[in-house]
């Protein structure tokens, strides 16, 4: 009996965020991240993640848990979960994409990049600057030159909204 309980005992990992919060998760959930998988293969059970903040890590653990339980029957449920997951602000999406990139979770990366791409489509350069918090570093002459070189890209009306 003892041996059966032991084999059923799930292997656990501890993830430590950049702001020093610790999270215990099942190894099978964590290894969906290539970065974590490599560390686990090297025998680590304590994984410091100096590039991932608590706020993003909580969301990512949620995502990994949901996707670890993927079966043939809960396809719709996962789709709904994913849709809600990306329904957030640009700042959150950037934080998540940075974390997903560091953790090498390719399906999450693809989903986040696609979401950001879809949401910046048809935006004006001014709106894109605000969304990415960028200051324009062109002189008016340079700006005019770029507009001229990409004239077709500036034909029509663009979306000025920031969401």
């Amino acid at each position: 009996m003892a041996s059966t309980t032991e084999t059923k005992q799930k292997k656990m990992l501890i993830l430590k965020s950049a702001d020093n919060d610790e999270f215990e998760i099942e190894e099978s959930v964590g290894v969906q991240s290539e970065t974590i998988k490599n560390l686990v293969e090297d025998g680590f059970t304590f994984v410091p993640l100096p590039n991932v903040y608590t706020k993003a890590l909580i969301k990512i653990i949620d995502y990994l848990k949901k996707h670890a339980n993927k079966t043939d029957s809960n396809d719709e449920e996962i789709k709904t979960f994913d849709k809600d997951f990306v329904n957030t602000t640009f700042d959150d999406l950037f934080e998540l994409v940075s974390a997903a990139n560091y953790l090498h979770i390719s399906c999450l990366m693809n989903m986040l990049c696609q979401t950001i791409a879809d949401r910046i489509k048809d935006k004006s350069p001014e709106a894109v600057r605000k969304i990415f918090h960028i200051n324009c570093d062109y002189t008016p002459e340079e700006e005019a030159k770029i507009r001229k070189a990409n004239a077709q890209a500036f034909e029509g009306q663009f979306d000025e909204s920031l969401d």
Partner: peptide
């Protein structure tokens, strides 16, 4: 990540993005 995001927009969007910053 940024190249991946631009690749998923369109040639027109990428053309306009040149004006955002260097």
């Amino acid at each position: 990540c940024l190249s991946e995001i631009f690749s998923l927009t369109s040639p027109k969007d990428a053309g306009r993005s040149s004006l955002v910053s260097r």
